[in-house]
Design a protein around this nucleic acid. Structure first.
Lengths: 342, 342
DNA sequence: GCATAAAATGCAAGCGCTTACATTTTCTCT
DNA sequence: AGAGAAAATGTAAGCGCTTGCATTTTATGC
């Protein structure tokens, strides 16, 4: 096993076909420049030998890898997985390969992976959100690495965004909650440090509260990890309060699912006693009882447009503009009127 | 944008530090072979220039990439995502990078991706299951590409397996169903063509039925795509029968979730009128009402062991043995006694 | 202080591929 | 049939890195 694999090289194919390496190379890359006859000979030799071009050598020779890197905080999150799938499909249609790394939500690891991807000759990069060391942006800009940010939106971003406005979407949910008469509201969020998406969602919630005349600082915010279990624990903690909330705004659907699950275990009815909202509209949201009111994000569209944008940047035909996709509020049964308004 | 990024090369660093390229290279790869003093000089130059080694060149020079490829049918499936995450973490601890591609369940695309990964110099490969063109195995064997199969198990596999026995696990669920008196049983499965995991699950179901004295060919099998919606449609179709089943064995949790959801919409109670079982034990299984009886698969452990096994194969210290992990039957509320046995 | 061993460094070949340029073959037209 | 243009093919120079070997520097022992 330790012995080096015996990979046929261009030269082997050339010898087998009785031509020069240049001809073989042309056969593979620009077939129209080769005569019908030799092409047949060469192709025959190619699959006779099971030849596969050596990528590293090609990258080196043409200084172009057709690899696009993407770094996501985690792959365990279905939400990123779906967007990546769309990205991958779109990119492979355009002849690029997507190389995905996950940073485990660590900016340090992310920075290392960015360098590694660039070292691997990645032609472009997808990054999630905007919270990272400014040095990273400087590096990317100096190296002229085409980069697209996604999963969020901002006007003043260092690279074009193809995403959506977390703040605004969160505002919309929170407003819908307020309109139903809720005044005792709590927030359950993912950690907001180094995570602009989570932070903007909380900010959106807060703004809606403020516009309703509520004081955000009187609203409890629980920050916790991304899991059903954590959502459940957060719910328990909230219900222990002297004055428990009648509505819980969750930063994502997984936390909301945890809240609902624990509520059902504790015999607390949703939405008559407590309303719950989520964010992302993952599959789970429609399966859970009661169905979850949440924000729908057009992941596939986002992936598609992001892919197109990045390739345009690489090929120099992009105007540098950002895209902000619309999200939509999915009103479902987990949100009801405040108990006093029933 | 189209202008080539200006990446500093080893030579630039060497010049800046006033040494030869060889010394810089050694600084980066075998620091103990370089004197303290020059190392400091070189390192300073390195981050002065923001130098990142060119991966393609290195691969070419050492004929080793430290890249491991994995090809999954889809990334949209949470189940694969979790295993991959574990794989990635384990591999990166050992100094390898995981490159993931998805084949969209197409053997043709998969074969192309395998070639491409090998061309990219991948040191090893993870593959899901065993159903693929024998030529692929021949190719891999000729090239001596260390490969680990996963997500299933078989004794006579062309490469070591680190997975679990789908057939046996499916047998266990089906047996549990039979033991509760069910005789009118239906199966809802993912497409079994070119998918040994799905096929083995159905075979396991069938064997259990046979051992209970039931004739598998009298049991309806619906094959459909992997989605909640499809599960729902399958359920509808089954309930239109003159003699509808009292238990539905689903090939995975997503289909089972669809079944349960549609049942609730149709006002058919689970499990009093129909029992439902799944496979995979994804998060959804514990959130849905009623909680889903299913098979738990130790994905993270599988990812870990698979990573370790592959690296051993690459480094020539592996005995070539396979690993079959235990699954466990999670008995939850979606499975009840057959109506007549109530 | 000098011979010798050991450590540090430099030189240069080569990894497999592409491509500009040079050369040969084939075609077209008279 | 032969000149000239066009198409096909070959030659060889790199792409950025590692590493065996040669060379220089530093350390060691007497």
């Amino acid at each position: 096993m330790a012995s080096a694999p015996i990979a046929p090289r261009l030269e082997d194919v050339a010898k087998a076909a009785g031509v020069s390496t240049a001809t073989v190379s042309r056969c593979l890359n620009t077939p129209q420049k080769v005569s019908e006859k030799t092409r047949a000979k060469v192709m025959h030799a190619v699959d006779q030998l099971g030849y596969t071009p050596h990528f590293g050598a090609r990258v080196m020779a043409v200084n172009r890898s057709f690899i696009i890197g993407a770094i996501v905080p985690t792959m365990e999150n279905a939400i990123f997985a779906r967007g990546l799938q769309a990205l991958q499909e779109a990119l492979s249609d355009m002849g690029y390969t997507l190389l995905v790394s996950s940073s485990s939500y660590s900016p340090r690891i992310e920075a290392a992976q960015i360098r590694s991807l660039i070292g691997r000759g990645a032609d472009g990069l997808f990054l999630i959100g905007q919270d990272r060391d400014p040095d990273v942006y400087t590096f990317l800009q100096n190296r002229r690495v085409p980069t697209v940010l996604t999963w969020n939106f901002a006007q003043d971003s260092p690279f074009p965004y193809v995403g959506f406005d977390n703040r605004r979407a969160a505002y919309d949910v929170a407003q819908a909650v307020c309109l139903r008469g809720h005044r005792d509201i709590a927030i359950v969020s993912a950690a907001t440090f180094d995570n602009d998406r989570a932070r903007h969602r909380v900010e959106g919630f807060h703004q809606a509260l403020r516009d309703t005349g509520l004081e955000p600082c009187s609203v409890p915010v629980i920050e916790t990890t991304y899991s059903i279990e954590s959502g459940g624990r957060a719910f328990e903690a909230l219900m222990r309060h002297a004055h428990p909330p009648t509505a819980i705004l969750c930063g994502n659907d997984v936390l909301a699912a945890g809240v609902i699950k624990r509520a059902s275990e504790m015999g607390i009815d949703i939405p008559t006693r407590v309303s719950v909202t989520g964010f992302d509209d993952i599959e789970l949201a429609q399966v859970i009882t009661p169905r979850l009111t949440t924000v729908h994000v057009p992941h596939r569209r986002m992936g598609n447009i992001a892919a197109r944008t990045l390739v345009e940047m690489i090929e120099g035909t992009h105007d540098g503009g950002s895209v902000c996709l619309d999200t939509s509020l999915m009103l479902r049964l987990s949100l009801g009127p405040a108990p006093s308004h029933a």
